[in-house]
Amino acid sequence: MASESNSAPVRWTKKDLLGISDLSAGEIQLILDTALSLQAIEKRPIKKVPTLRGKTVINLFFEASTRTRSSFEIAEKRLSADTLNFSASGSALEKGESLIDTAMNLEAMAPDMIVIRHKHPGAPHLLARRLGSGVINAGDGAHEHPTQALLDAFTILQKKGRIAGLKVAIVGDIGHSRVVRSNIHLLTKMGARVVVAGPRTLMPVEIEKMGVEVAYTLEDALRDADVVMMLRIQLERGGGTAFPSVREYFQMFGLSKPRLSLAKDDAIIMHPGPMNRGVEISSEVADGPWSVILEQVANGVAVRMAVLYLLSGAHEESR
């Protein structure tokens, strides 16, 4: 991926990472190349570089998260940034403080970057406009989750060596998924063919306008796929009311080993987590040799380090 040539690389100029829709293919490639270089740090005896020494990053999570928050925190620590974790429960938000007031108060403590997850789409954009700190979107409602799409792309590149020309099937709760939206933006910009599949009740109208094909059966989506991305049914966003029963959902759209044979022999299976075994994916598939689910988690750290590194440079420039 990283080239040795002296051709002028794309330069990173953005203070914030709010979504994949704002990025060019060149900027996406720059993040992925940087992540590849940073990934080796975890294999060293001292898994830390001094790059963000003296920088402060606040992780502002208004929604539950295990993977994403710990992944960001590890990434920040490997770059030597000081981190502060802030979650909605136990904060002044429970006393009625608004998002902007909370953020302005945190900003008054002079952080360099803020990582935010919020249930409302656009919350990170609001902060980015109001705050001088760099803002990273760690998931805003059903809108975008850019670092997830980037780590998915990194994993695909690692396994397939390319993104352009691959058939990627994304299956499940398309309507409630920010992971899908970010992935569609990214994969289409990088030249992949994306097919989304799921129950009609969970399929957003006019999703074709995002440049994807729609399949209403799992079989159609899986046929000759290079990459299969399974999504969780988001019960907390109402995903559970869109079909009669979990059992029926698994019959229709759950990925089991016999169905997997429709995909290419060397297809890889991805899942952004958390996984509901027996609902969208069988344990046999989730734990099989084609599964790259844990690699996705591992790659998340390197990709988030790359984002933090690039953003902190642009942030200095804008001061």
């Binding site: 270089s37 590194y309 902190s312 200095e316 420039e317």
Partner: peptide, 19 residues
């Protein structure tokens, strides 16, 4: 690159390559 002492003053961070 990751060990440079001028990262906080040079603005845009240079491309990191592998070690």
């Amino acid at each position: 690159t990751l060990y440079r002492d001028d990262l906080s003053t040079i603005g845009q961070h240079p491309l990191v390559k592998e070690t």
